[in-house]
Design a binder for these strands. Structure first.
Lengths: 236, 236
DNA sequence: AATCTTTGTAATCGGTGCTTACATTCACAA
DNA sequence: TTGTGAATGTAAGCACCGATTACAAAGATT
């Protein structure tokens, strides 16, 4: 189009040395990166960890990967696509830790498992606030899609849902409406994690040292609130 | 129409036309805007409402105010400062609605007031998700500073805290640790609002039509969980 | 070996926050 | 009324960003 029609193989090189083909013999920077996609995700993960989702720029990721600003667009059609990949990676790590924690939980006690789930969830969220932030915003991570794709691994939200449903069936809850309990439980845990991310904790006099204990206490308080014999109206 | 004719009509400009002083006689666009700060905040509020905090750009706000891109920086030293002003405006509206709702609450029943508070909080948050988002992120709004500055108006977080404390003193709670109840209540409500903002509700099968009812139900569920005679162990 | 596909680079576009130099107007004092 | 300094607008420009396009290099396939 408006290209000035670069000179054909014009023999000598006047001024523009025609992007380095030389060196290479010992410089060892191959034209093709090898695994740029992976490296870009790692760089972006690091950027998220350093300054949150907003601190991720395609150019900076490219810079850290030692590659030109346009290169990432060969692997991700947009910044958001890169963020999606980052969110998936974060979710992978998140799930791994949750499932590991759940392995040590009592198998016969649904409410106990729920407690374990909640505490592990909060621990990870507070240790990796920026990564958690990426996961929890639906903009970058479609939980449903993720659940459908990796069918072998249980989806986390569904796990919580099912655990509470088991407790309900086992008569461990006194509420009449299971769904309300599930959503309330979710809201409580999610809200606590979000409060931590959004910097509410200092306002509530909870320091970094005590926040983990407080998380466990709050989960316990909730469980104590919903636990009880399954009666139609249990207002004491 | 402030200053009538002051510039001579001056016919042709040779080379440098010396930025328009002409027109004005009937165009009525004064050089000074009059209340640019206010208009910028309004424009930014509108942008937040349309596309969330990320959709706010100083230039677009200037554009909507009909002013040059650099003008806003006379009133706000940075984009963040503008966002702060927007957050304060949002908080003002938020507080107004909450306090109005609280006026209709039973004065003698702390738990009833807490319920009223929670429901009003959630209603506003879900009707103004983007504005709520700005308020809740500590990046743009310092709740403590706001509390200190406008001392006559009760701060909202403190209001919730105090209401629960009254319930505690009145023996309406069965928990031993008031602070845990306060934080749990906050986490629940905040988490619910955040879930709505972050688009979790569809995943939980809660449509836009039912979300308000669900909000009230969840608040009630929480209250039922913490209510009871103030005994060391009240497990019925 | 020749060719097609993949994956890199270079240059460029429009958008952004923010700064600087300059223009205009306001408010207040002489 | 008339200066004059402060307040507040414009214009131009910087660096950065996401994204696109034309082109170059390397790998893969036949």
């Amino acid at each position: 189009m408006r290209r000035p029609a670069k000179s054909p193989p014009a023999g000598g090189r006047p001024a523009k040395p025609r992007p380095a083909v030389a060196a290479r013999v010992l410089a060892a920077k191959p034209y093709h990166h090898g695994d740029l996609r992976r490296v870009l995700i790692d760089a972006a993960m690091q950027l998220v960890g350093e300054g949150g989702p907003a601190a991720v720029s395609v150019r900076e990721a490219a810079r850290r990967a030692g590659v030109s600003p346009g290169a990432p667009f060969r692997h991700f059609p947009s910044r958001d696509a890169l963020m999606n990949a980052v969110a998936e990676e974060a979710q992978r790590r998140f799930r791994a830790e949750i499932e590991a924690a759940l392995a040590d939980a009592p198998p016969g006690d649904p409410l106990g498992r729920f407690r374990c789930l909640g505490v592990a969830y909060l621990r990870w969220a507070m240790k990796n606030p920026t990564h958690f932030e990426i996961i929890s915003s639906r903009r970058f991570f479609d939980h449903d899609r993720s659940a459908g794709v990796s069918g072998d691994n249980a989806e986390l939200i569904g796990l919580t849902e099912r655990t509470l449903a088991e407790a309900f069936s086992a008569g461990q809850l006194r509420a009449r409406d299971l769904k309300q309990v599930q959503i309330a439980g979710r809201a409580l845990v999610y809200g606590f994690a979000r409060m931590h991310i959004d910097g509410h904790m200092p306002r509530w006099g909870v320091g970094e040292a005590e926040v983990e204990q407080m998380a466990a206490d709050v989960v316990d308080l909730f469980i104590a609130g919903i636990a009880g014999p399954a009666v139609p109206s249990a207002k004491a």
